[in-house]
């Protein structure tokens, strides 16, 4: 059923989206979308509102099952595996509308992010054997390290919902990093950030890449996207309109037309 034949993935391809289609009722949210994400790169997905970007993320993370097509992550089919299993395999994400655990502290949010890298269950928790304590200490150490990394270590004990919105986005990224992902999907991480915060975000993304983590980014902020992406995929009404380096995308007539036709005036 797939248009691409069964030849093995080139070694550095971490994720392959292979003619994926998905519709909701009459709306074709994704229409035969294909592209590869190479390990160690920052790959962006852009497109006007309703283009299908978030749907694409939901399909990659296993939250939605596509109608047609398939997703290969590290040469394995994503389809049929549950969201939480895929996190264990190294796919972590953030949400377009920040989804923190609001009643929990900043530190606890990161600790939940570490869920798949720890293993204490009901009996372990009640018994509190020495391996459980050791695991807990280690998890806290790592969580503080991550808070340091995203710049929130001073707020470890604040309730996460008390943080200013922009910082919540940084916390959400830190939480996703808790799973030690190999592929990190960020859905519009810059939306709601001011200019200074956006710059800081760009810097953080570079540092994340520096750790060998592959980034797949949905973003409307063009200067950020153009500045840090290795490759960009443009979606428009569920279809892949173009793919290329930031330079190629900026000079692509179809892309410019799609953006001019939409209500977004922000395209450079």
């Amino acid at each position: 059923m797939s248009v691409l034949d069964e030849k093995p993935l080139p070694l550095q391809t971490l994720l392959r989206v292979d003619s994926v289609s998905m519709s909701f009722g009459g709306i074709q949210a994704l229409n035969e979308v294909s592209f590869d994400v190479k390990a160690g790169t920052i790959h962006s997905v852009i497109g006007p509102n309703g283009a299908g970007k978030t749907t694409l993320f939901n399909v990659i993370t296993g939250a939605y099952v596509p109608d047609r097509g398939r997703i290969l992550y590290e040469e394995q089919e994503v389809q049929g595996r549950k969201v939480h299993e895929l996190v264990r395999q190294g796919i972590a994400r953030t949400f377009q509308n920040v989804e923190l655990f609001g009643s929990m502290s900043v530190l606890e949010n990161i600790l939940v992010g570490r869920h798949v890298r720890t293993r204490c269950g009901f009996l372990g928790a009640m018994g509190r054997w020495s391996w459980v304590k050791k695991e807990e200490v280690e998890a806290k150490r790592r969580a503080l390290e991550l808070l340091e990394f995203v710049g929130l270590v001073d707020f470890a004990h604040h309730r996460s919902e008390d943080l200013p919105f922009g910082w919540q986005r940084f916390l959400e990224i830190g939480r996703a990093l808790g799973a030690d992902p190999r592929l990190l999907l960020l859905d519009e991480p810059a939306s709601g950030l001011n200019a200074v915060e956006t710059q800081r975000l760009g810097d953080l993304l570079e540092r994340i890449r520096g750790q060998g983590i592959t980034l797949l980014l949905v973003e409307h902020d063009m200067s950020l996207t153009m500045g840090i992406s290795d490759l960009i995929v443009v979606l428009h009404q569920g279809r892949k309109l173009a793919e290329g380096t930031p330079k190629e995308i900026q000079s692509n007539d179809e892309v410019i037309a799609a953006y001019l036709g939409s209500d977004r005036e922000s395209f450079p």
Partner: peptide, 17 residues
């Protein structure tokens, strides 16, 4: 923590594995 996470956002809890 996982229990409270489910309470706050089941969607995000699943996304944490």
């Amino acid at each position: 923590r996982a229990l409270r996470a489910i309470h706050d956002s089941e969607k995000a809890a699943a996304a944490m594995g």
